[in-house]
Amino acid sequence: MLKIPIIDLAIFRKSDIKSQQAIAKEIYDACHKIGFMYLRNSGISKDLIAQVFSHSKSLFNLSLAAKQKLAWKNELSNIGYVGIERERLDPNQPGDLKEAFNFNKAELLTLQPPANEPEIFVFYQACTELANKILQAFALALELPEYFFTIRHNQQNHTLRLLHYPPLQTPPKPGQVRAGEHSDYGSITLLFQDNVGGLEVQTTAGEWIAAPTIPDTVIVNTGDLMQRWTNDVFCSTKHRVMIPHDQQLERSRYSIAFFCHPNDDTEIACLETCQKERAPIYPPILAGEYLLSRLQATY
Score class of each variant (00 low, 15 high):
residue 260 C to F: 15
residue 258 F to Q: 01
residue 212 P to E: 08
residue 43 G to N: 04
residue 130 L to W: 05
residue 30 A to P: 08
residue 126 A to H: 00
residue 290 Y to W: 13
residue 256 I to W: 06
residue 204 T to N: 12
residue 180 G to L: 10
residue 253 R to H: 04
residue 4 I to A: 09
residue 285 I to Y: 04
residue 245 H to A: 12
residue 21 Q to L: 08
residue 34 I to M: 11
residue 244 P to G: 03
residue 20 Q to G: 05
residue 99 E to R: 02
residue 140 L to V: 09
residue 249 L to Q: 10
residue 43 G to C: 05
residue 26 E to H: 07
residue 108 L to A: 08
residue 82 V to I: 14
residue 266 T to W: 15
residue 212 P to Q: 06
residue 189 T to A: 11
residue 191 L to T: 08
residue 187 S to Y: 03
residue 186 G to Q: 08
residue 3 K to Y: 09
residue 53 F to R: 02
residue 212 P to F: 05
residue 47 D to M: 00
residue 15 S to A: 10
residue 107 E to H: 15
residue 57 K to T: 09
residue 184 D to A: 10
residue 243 I to M: 03
residue 27 I to A: 08
residue 11 I to A: 06
residue 26 E to A: 11
residue 120 I to T: 10
residue 292 L to Y: 12
residue 117 E to F: 08
residue 193 Q to P: 01
residue 230 T to K: 02
residue 56 S to V: 01
residue 229 W to A: 12
residue 237 T to C: 13
residue 157 N to I: 01
residue 31 C to E: 05
residue 199 L to V: 03
residue 181 E to A: 14
residue 249 L to R: 13
residue 173 K to L: 15
residue 29 D to R: 05
residue 99 E to T: 03
residue 39 L to S: 03
residue 134 I to R: 08
residue 204 T to A: 14
residue 149 F to D: 14
residue 239 H to F: 12
residue 26 E to W: 02
residue 262 P to Q: 09
residue 4 I to T: 13
residue 209 I to M: 06
residue 52 V to Y: 01
residue 140 L to A: 03
residue 246 D to W: 02
residue 162 L to N: 03
residue 32 H to V: 07
residue 232 D to T: 07
residue 253 R to A: 02
residue 237 T to F: 06
residue 59 L to K: 05
residue 135 L to E: 11
residue 111 L to F: 06
residue 220 V to I: 14
residue 27 I to R: 03
residue 271 L to N: 07
residue 128 T to R: 05
residue 5 P to N: 11
residue 274 C to F: 06
residue 193 Q to E: 10
residue 80 G to R: 05
residue 8 D to K: 01
residue 132 N to A: 05
residue 251 R to K: 13
residue 62 L to E: 12
residue 53 F to E: 06
residue 32 H to T: 13
residue 205 A to L: 11
residue 256 I to R: 06
residue 164 H to R: 05
residue 75 E to W: 00
residue 165 Y to A: 00
residue 22 A to Q: 09
residue 243 I to W: 03
residue 272 E to G: 14
residue 99 E to I: 04
residue 285 I to R: 10
residue 56 S to Q: 09
residue 62 L to Q: 14
residue 119 E to W: 01
residue 288 G to T: 12
residue 41 N to F: 03
residue 53 F to L: 06
residue 180 G to T: 10
residue 225 L to H: 10
residue 258 F to D: 03
residue 79 I to R: 15
residue 56 S to D: 02
residue 292 L to I: 14
residue 92 N to D: 14
residue 113 P to C: 12
residue 220 V to H: 07
residue 255 S to Q: 05
residue 154 N to Y: 02
residue 188 I to K: 06
residue 3 K to S: 15
residue 85 E to A: 04
residue 237 T to Q: 11
residue 291 L to I: 15
residue 168 L to R: 00
residue 227 Q to I: 03
residue 53 F to D: 08
residue 156 Q to G: 02
residue 107 E to V: 12
residue 164 H to W: 00
